[in-house]
């Protein structure tokens, strides 16, 4: 190997298809989109405007209102997902991993089912259930004496976004549950036994022993939730339409991008502004991922067994 190295063509052959498709269909369009955001189209002629599109997006009241609205909604969407989905997911995983629990496989399989369903199914199923027309939700509330609490949530600008976020939680709870469950299984028995010897059991064992050990997994889940939420589109589009009603109260960056790029009703589609929004999303996701990688992940203590 050391003295003469013939060209190892097979390495190239093994790598070529994956690298070619990945570069051509993913990396190249990504950078082409970033580039498109620096141009504008006037009378079908492309003109370089530098950061002009971004100035328009953040400064022009026609655009900035929508942008900040979508960004703020997206942030709230992410906060609800983080605050509800991940604690419940961790709690379910902790219960599932308790030793000698019967039927763990059945619970696991069942709780993961919503995650495999498409957004179309999830969106319409909940739309029907929450519909005042059909009356499943009001009847069920009436059964426990809380009928007065019912409101057509999806049609009310105050509640719609939070309800959408909770539907998203319902759909994706399986992912934190599974990943945390896997992480809990990797904790060696000796560690748990040593804790039991010292009289640390039950809840205290979870908080003092297990939770610190699964923090890296919780970090990964948080960043997955972040990327997924700031890229969300389908659930809102299916349930509330491209206009993200009522009155744009459920508009996320994804639906804003779709409307801008393709146009809707009277507004014409604008690829350059679409690319500008996509670039802004790219920046937001990049900042989030960097904060995680350099600010959080490096500080998490990893334990080797």
């Amino acid at each position: 190997m050391a003295d003469k190295r013939p060209v190892r063509w097979h390495i190239g052959v093994f790598l070529a298809p994956a690298v070619a498709i990945y570069t051509a269909v993913m990396i190249f369009p990504l950078f082409a989109t970033l580039n498109l955001s620096l141009y504008t189209t006037v009378h079908q002629v492309s003109q370089f405007v530098g950061l002009g599109n971004f100035r328009k997006l953040l400064g022009d009241p026609n655009w900035s209102g929508q942008f900040w609205n979508a960004l703020g909604n997206n942030f709230w969407f992410f906060v609800v997902n983080m605050a509800v989905q991940n604690p419940i997911g961790v709690a379910l995983a902790a219960l599932l991993s308790s030793p000698r629990l019967r039927g763990a496989a059945i619970y696991r399989t069942a709780i993961f089912i919503p995650t495999i369903l498409s957004f179309v199914i999830v969106g319409f199923v909940w739309k029907l259930i929450l519909s005042p027309l059909w009356g499943i939700a009001p009847d069920m509330l009436a059964a426990v004496g809380l009928k007065s609490l019912f409101a057509p949530w999806l049609g009310d600008a105050h509640y719609a976004l939070t309800v959408m976020a909770l539907i998203s939680v319902w759909q994706f709870i399986g992912i934190p549950m599974m990943l945390i469950y896997a992480a809990l299984l990797t904790i060696p028995d000796e560690v748990i036994e040593a804790a039991e010897m010292d009289g640390i059991t039950g809840m205290r064992q979870f908080w003092k022993i297990k939770l610190p050990l699964i923090l890296p997994s919780i970090g990964i889940i948080s960043i997955l939730t972040f990327v997924g939420n700031f890229n969300a589109f389908d659930l809102i589009y299916v349930t509330q339409g491209a206009l993200a009603g009522p009155n744009f109260s459920t508009d996320l960056l994804g639906t804003f991008l779709y409307r801008t790029f393709f146009g809707f009703q009277l507004q014409l589609g604008d690829p350059n502004m679409g690319a500008t929004i996509a670039t802004a999303m790219f920046g937001i996701i990049l900042v989030g991922v960097c904060i995680y990688l350099f600010g959080i992940q490096t500080r998490l203590r990893r334990y080797q067994f």
Binding site: F28, L36, N231, F233, G254
Partner: peptide, 24 residues
């Protein structure tokens, strides 16, 4: 480096390149 290049796509959603993908 190639491994890192290929791993980039795990974090960055392909959707953000949609405008250029459609043009292509």
């Amino acid at each position: 480096l190639l491994g890192l290049y290929l791993a980039l796509g795990i974090m960055i959603p392909i959707r953000l390149g949609t405008v250029a993908i459609l043009q292509m």
